[in-house]
Design a protein around this nucleic acid. Sequence first.
DNA 1: GCGACGATGATCGTATACAATCCAGCCCTC
DNA 2: GAGGGCTGGATTGTATACGATCATCGTCGC
Lengths: 245, 245
Amino acid sequence: MDVLESLAPERSPDRGKRPSNRVTTICRAIQTAIAEQRLMPGTRLSEDQLGGIFGASRTLVRAALQSLARDGVVVLTRNKGAAVARPTVEDARALFEARRIIEAATVSRAALRVTAADIATLEALVKRGRDALDTQDRGRAIRMSGEFHLAIARMAKQPVLHEFLSELVARSSLVIALYGHSAHSECGDAEHAGLIDILRNRDPALATATMIRHLDHIEADLDLVQQPPEARPLSDILRASSGAD
Amino acid sequence: MDVLESLAPERSPDRGKRPSNRVTTICRAIQTAIAEQRLMPGTRLSEDQLGGIFGASRTLVRAALQSLARDGVVVLTRNKGAAVARPTVEDARALFEARRIIEAATVSRAALRVTAADIATLEALVKRGRDALDTQDRGRAIRMSGEFHLAIARMAKQPVLHEFLSELVARSSLVIALYGHSAHSECGDAEHAGLIDILRNRDPALATATMIRHLDHIEADLDLVQQPPEARPLSDILRASSGAD
DNA sequence: GCGACGATGATCGTATACAATCCAGCCCTC
DNA sequence: GAGGGCTGGATTGTATACGATCATCGTCGC
């Protein structure tokens, strides 16, 4: 918890979306729900409904949805409203290609600058992911895996790439939700642990190669052919996430 | 013009910001003005003022500003409103580092897939940039240069990277406005022409190396130490840009 | 004369109201 | 019975209203 505390509240140098904390709260709640796959792709997100859930007017909900749409995790259809995005197979491939390019760079730089505290942070994240798996909390495990990648980007001290990657990680959850054959997609605990060792040795080249292979594995584990039915009710799926990290 | 026509209207597979065309119009007008450096960093963007200029209510203007803030070209300060961003020196360095990483990838892929039509498009862009320079229209020349880079990303058929790059190009205009010693920053006509030749020969490795050097040159041409005073009136700076391409 | 304090204006944050659009179900017609 | 058109409800698009916050400027006291 303490380790996570330092990274959960900030989702980058906070980016250019200062406008009120409430819309940020809504964004984060939805984003977390998506990352943990409690909100499945295709789920309709009615403005009124969300407003009721969060006790906010449509104005704020709209702002949140637009922000999420900008991140690519929500799609807005004119006069039809918002829905959790359903990435296509091509989207998925492009997404992982982009991740390989960006993460090759972040992990390489991270390897050059990593500190003992950073290593501890990463280890804690892996442990949390393992714990989540042990308790059958697959959604949480997936989120921890994403946080692991983001933590590396943060250590690279490259805010631009970190920001981009956070978008990509968010969309990855959707891809995994749609195409992962639930077994163990994206829960490469062992590979993450291996990456930590490499980082500890400050070996940028090996780190890069390993990261690319790791992402290849995740992508290969996907079943890029079919997608599940529709979605679930939505209503109370969100609440449980806000503060509970 | 005809060549440009095909790429100007779309700024990626249109991304998740369907919400009305009017806010898109406002976004594009402001973004173009920034790209052409008619709107200088630090310029205050009052919601009422913009609403008056575009004949829209604050609701739409706010949506546009939030979107631009998400792109990093505008900063929102709570209770103080929006202003054109003023990237710091560190921002500038991180920006170009990210551009090197992303554009190394896009130009490499573009080199593998480029068509004759693509080459023509690129040549037209260079020509337009040169024309703009000849007529002392520095702002337009800078925009054309950005369009050149974006066109390459589009040819790479990697929508994700294209989208990221369009953010980075937009921010680059700000950096150049702040730190470019007006001489000839970012107007590497010759280098762009050279890149076209390399692309025509489909040489990914050389294209990558050349692109990185090109970006290095742009960055090196900057005067990363000082920034200009404040800004200009704003009011009628925007109008002149919308349709006029 | 100078600094601190309070009023005033401008600007943003949020909520709500109204208009436009779309979807679904029903009824009518063939 | 099937198809098409229509109407009602729901949802979003946009505008406006009101409250909160901040900056500025004038005034008052020292």
